[in-house]
């Protein structure tokens, strides 16, 4: 009997490379929240890198083949595939989308991975699992410590909504799914201008100057809108907004001191998951003072 059977909802899980390194608090808090909500999660054994942006940037076939092989590994684990990273999510879904539409590419990929591509395996971002599969009503019912008074700038970035036919998650110009989750757990989403702008993502290694400009605009916009903190659902966005925040402050001379949470950290906090199981101590911009001020810690 699979260990997941005892749960009404259970998923296979593709964490992606970042969640095993610079974004380990996203992995830890995902497991913490799923455990608290009694949602099963089983990691795909020996999954490998989806190729992310660099692969599709220069070699579409390779990118499709890497994702297709990961999908077939995931096929061996029961349940829809839960993905935490917005970039992995986008690549895996893009692969299914392109190969469904294009027989020539599908045949090339099948030759490359020497097997069929599981186009039917449902790929879901955590956000979708929490808001739709588990459901906002049940989420509201699971809250033990509502995030009352916490003003949150929900940041979608690029790949959770674009291009709309790939993620199929929400409206591509005016999404509300993140804000709905935050309202369900008692937080206050703020209205702000940069929810869907790009953080500079992949340039963090090659051209950090790009990050300084784009991520600074996002931090400034959140601050100006009165947010206490930012919430993300992608390790690349997190790296640029959290890890590089001090550098951005030095470059621009503006102080933000803006904690950047993963969605699973905030939902976990509200649902009574111990802060120790949410990886809050791994955040570079410490949330301790803010959470204490709001009586959340």
């Amino acid at each position: 009997m699979s260990p997941n059977r005892k749960f009404a909802l259970s998923y296979s899980y593709y964490p992606g490379c970042s969640l095993h390194a610079s974004a380990k608090e996203y992995d830890v808090s995902t497991k913490g929240v799923f455990n608290a909500l009694r949602i099963g999660l089983k990691e795909v054994p020996d999954w490998f890198c989806c190729g992310a942006t660099p692969a599709h940037n220069v070699d579409e076939l390779l990118s499709l083949a890497l994702c297709a092989k990961n999908l077939s590994l995931a096929g061996k684990v029961e349940g829809d595939l839960a993905v935490a990273c917005a970039a992995c999510f986008s690549r895996l879904k893009t692969t299914q989308h392109r190969l469904k539409e294009n027989d020539i590419k599908r045949k090339q990929v099948e030759t490359a991975i020497d097997g069929p591509v599981p186009l039917g395996k449902k790929v879901k971002h955590l956000l979708e699992i929490l808001a739709k599969d588990f459901g906002l009503d049940k989420l509201e019912g699971a809250v033990q410590k509502p995030l009352t008074g916490l003003k949150i700038a929900c940041y979608y970035g690029c790949l959770l909504t674009r291009p709309p036919e790939v993620p199929e998650l929400d409206d591509c110009e005016a999404p509300t799914i993140m804000e709905n989750v935050i309202k369900a757990v008692g937080g206050e989403p703020v209205a702000w201008s940069h929810r869907l702008e790009c953080c500079g993502a992949n340039f963090t290694l090659s051209r950090p100057g790009v990050i300084l400009k784009l991520s600074n605009e996002i931090l400034a916009s959140a601050k100006d809108a009165g947010a206490d903190c930012i919430m993300v659902a992608c390790p690349l966005c997190h790296g640029n907004l959290d890890i590089r925040q001090e550098e951005i402050e030095q470059a621009t001379g503006r102080r933000y001191g803006m904690p950047v949470f993963y969605i699973t950290q905030l939902v976990g906090l509200a649902c009574g998951v111990s802060p120790l199981r949410l990886g809050l101590e791994s955040m570079i911009v410490s949330p301790a003072a803010l959470l204490r001020e709001k009586n959340l810690l």
Binding site: C17, S18, H20, A21, S22, D46, F48, C49, G51, A52, P54, A55, N57, V58, D59, L62, L66, N202, F203, L205, S206, R207
Partner: peptide, 28 residues
Amino acid sequence: YVQLANRLFMENIRTYGRQYEMRLAAVF
């Protein structure tokens, strides 16, 4: 620079299967 980062990223996949950010940054 972008091309170099891309190339190292792909080499990492081929050699290790996953990305190890520290190695990637150091080699870059």
